[in-house]
Nucleic acid binder design. Structure first.
Lengths: 238, 238
DNA sequence: GTTGCCGGCTTACATAGGTTAAGGTGCGGC
DNA sequence: GCCGCACCTTAACCTATGTAAGCCGGCAAC
């Protein structure tokens, strides 16, 4: 049950056995969820943090008139509301697929981090990596054309799913609708459809029945002007 | 010299005198900078964190062909490269005005946070608030029209400058060019000019000679669909 | 005081992307 | 085996925003 969490923490280098034990005794509870479930609502002040064990989710905010913006996608191993530890949630989290979250009580988590500062730093670093991704999205939406923007998004998703071990030979489950894609890229649904067809037409990918298939990875990266360094996949903590 | 830092940390509630002393003995050095100075370069792996003591700066990334995206503006009291503590900088920081930064050595900072976990949490919370602002910018750029988008940006800047005590009767120093404004909002310079004239035409603000004057604050907030809750101005740490 | 430059402003024109509306397709429910 | 619904697709048209080019005013350098 803690495998995902330990793995996520150890991206930044191995933990000591004492640290690992401390993490494992957090008193966490796991909970299944259904596709489309609201995992965290805008305005919540949760009493525990959620680790995504299985499945996918996304972060979003909706304006009064219904326009929605998706701010990130999440894959197993991600802490999806770590910021809720200190701030009320200013956005919601919704499940894309069925899956499972692990609930880590705030109080226990804070104690753990106080007594094991190195572990605390790793949680902090997770939120810093999220922030780096937010910045990349600002750049993507602000300065790239629809075609490049969508390609870039797919590149990011594939790399992250791959790291979670969920890509098999270029194929992965990624059940988004074109509306989701529009809301993530700041485009209209119609234009997203047009652009997606262009990407398909170039033989770069296919997205159907909830499955994303990358047909030409170098081509997709080029189309998305993609450079994964902002994901900080290999950085280790001090 | 530490006034700004202590103030920033105490937004989240008072520190104990022990904590305050520990912060004050960080061995920090202050450095002046000129307008346009590159405070942190993309790719840097700094050995200290910078607190903005005086002046303004902005965070940005430039693409190969010269397109630039500004990701945030910063005011005195902000830690501008706290993420550099754990990750190499994936973007640069440039001075907008003349000013001064305080250098806090990473090693000392890490020791401080290990021995005073409550102080560590507050630094962490600062980066979480930055992340909340990044998310708001994603929404702003992705889902709002040029007019609303620019108005929203000015609202944010004014609120933050106000909190730093730099707004006097609606007037504040904010020496950005229209090009800066374009790069922050993802618009072209020409369209930024048009839109700015519309805002002026509505009697909402004036921006000239490096000075921003808010002429109609309620009107500007309405135009920017602005709700400051994402800035988490009053949240206190656990 | 001329020169050069930067930032602001304008105009004319081009286009990426939005809007509206309608038809098609697959699929679960009954 | 039909219905309804969610999603995808297409088409026609529109407009917000981008591009290219040039001018103007102020100010710093010499």
């Amino acid at each position: 049950m803690f495998r995902r969490l330990i793995e996520s923490l150890e991206v930044l280098g191995p933990l000591t056995s004492g640290e690992r034990e401390a993490v494992e005794s957090l008193g966490a509870v796991s909970r299944p969820f259904a596709p489309g479930a609201e995992l965290v609502a805008e305005g919540d002040a949760p009493a525990h943090c959620r680790l995504l064990l299985e499945g996918q989710a996304f972060r979003h905010r909706t304006l009064a008139d219904g326009r929605r913006q998706i701010m990130s996608f999440h894959t197993p191993g991600d802490m999806i509301d770590l910021e809720g530890l200190f701030l009320p949630m200013d956005h919601g989290l919704t499940a894309l697929t069925a899956g499972e979250v692990l609930h880590l009580p705030h109080a226990r988590l804070l104690d753990l981090m106080d007594s094991h500062p190195r572990v605390g730093r790793r949680f902090w670093t997770m939120t810093l990596k999220d922030a780096a991704i937010f910045r990349e999205w600002i750049l993507n939406i602000g300065r790239r054309t629809a075609y490049v923007r969508i390609a870039h998004l797919f590149c990011e998703v594939v790399v992250r799913l791959q790291r979670a071990g969920l890509v098999d030979n270029g194929r992965c489950a990624f059940p988004i609708t074109q509306q989701h894609l529009s809301d993530a890229t700041g485009l209209s649904a119609v234009h997203t459809n047009r652009t997606l067809q262009a990407l398909r037409g170039e033989g770069l990918l296919s997205l159907r029945g909830g499955e994303l298939v990358v047909l030409d990875w170098p081509g997709l990266q080029a189309a998305g002007e993609f450079d994964s360094s902002y994901l900080h996949l290999r950085e280790s903590a001090a």
